[in-house]
């Protein structure tokens, strides 16, 4: 095939696939502005009515707040536990450390349905009321392996000397960790944090099975689906997508700053 034809073919193929990838998102966002009650063509006109609806919807806004709360708190806990464990395994020699590390990353290999089901059976056996706390506990389980792996991978040998220097100058253990190690690792700690927030923010199964009266946003959207296609669902879906993208770009900025290469 001549080179030009090849290039034309490549552009066509990439165009079609990008179209496929973006089709549902474009339709979702476009018809969230639908001036009518059905979010399907034809487009009757553009309105912000449905966004007004969702921001006036008390239940939906409560769910949005719950989602943010659960995402931020569970990610912070996961980062803290992950950081401490990474510090222990990178700086000290512990017996059977391979096995212990395997235990910490194990939840990553198991589907969230199984994690949720296990937690649900234990909680109901122990008569623990389902709430946002139980959802948060589940989200820490899925995010801890991720935080641990990211932070552990970035704890190199080159930081040890700086920590030693700090210790020689009289810093206590907690001072070394808090004032020396943590700031040096801040890019990867933040990367782990934002990635966790993204996952927790979007997670459905654990949030669905382990919540009762207060629910997170994906669960609330799920219950909205029962009423079928509705531009209001489009509007809240677009908001959720926008927030995920914002989180992603924050992550990208931080990762970029860490690697220090403009691309």
């Amino acid at each position: 095939m001549p080179r030009q034809l090849q290039t034309a073919f490549a552009i066509l193929y990439a165009g079609v696939l990008y179209g496929f990838i973006f089709l549902p998102v474009v339709v979702l966002v476009l018809f969230s502005f639908q001036d009518g009650t059905l979010p399907v063509p034809p487009l009757h006109g553009l309105t912000l009515h449905w966004y007004g609806e969702i921001f006036a919807d008390r239940k939906l806004m409560a769910a949005l707040g719950n989602s943010l709360l659960v995402a931020v708190i569970s990610s912070a806990v996961a980062c803290l536990l992950g950081f401490l464990a990474a510090y222990a395994f990178a700086r000290y020699r512990l017996p059977a450390s391979n096995l212990q590390r395997a235990l910490i990353v194990a939840p990553m290999t198991v589907s969230t349905l199984i994690i949720a089901l296990g937690l649900l059976s234990v909680f109901s056996r122990l008569d623990i009321q389902l709430s946002l706390w139980t959802v948060g506990a589940g989200h820490v389980v899925i995010n801890l392996p991720l935080c641990f792996a990211i932070i552990y991978a970035s704890m190199g040998a080159h930081q040890i000397n700086i920590e030693r220097a700090a210790r020689d100058l009289g810093a206590r253990d907690w001072q070394v960790m808090l004032l020396v190690t943590a700031p040096m690792l801040m890019p990867s700690i933040l990367a782990a944090f934002f990635l966790s927030v993204t996952f927790s923010w979007d997670e459905f199964i654990i949030a669905f099975l382990l919540s009762r009266f207060d629910v997170t946003l994906p669960v609330e959207i799920w219950s909205m689906l029962r009423s079928g296609l509705d531009p209001k669902t489009n509007a809240i879906g677009s908001v959720v997508f926008l927030m995920s993208v914002v989180l992603l770009f924050m992550l990208e900025l931080i990762v970029l700053r860490k690697s220090g290469k403009p691309s």
Partner: peptide, 10 residues
């Protein structure tokens, strides 16, 4: 990019 929308919304 659309990878990062939740399962439910997608």
């Amino acid at each position: 990019l659309p990878f990062w929308t939740s399962y439910v919304v997608r």
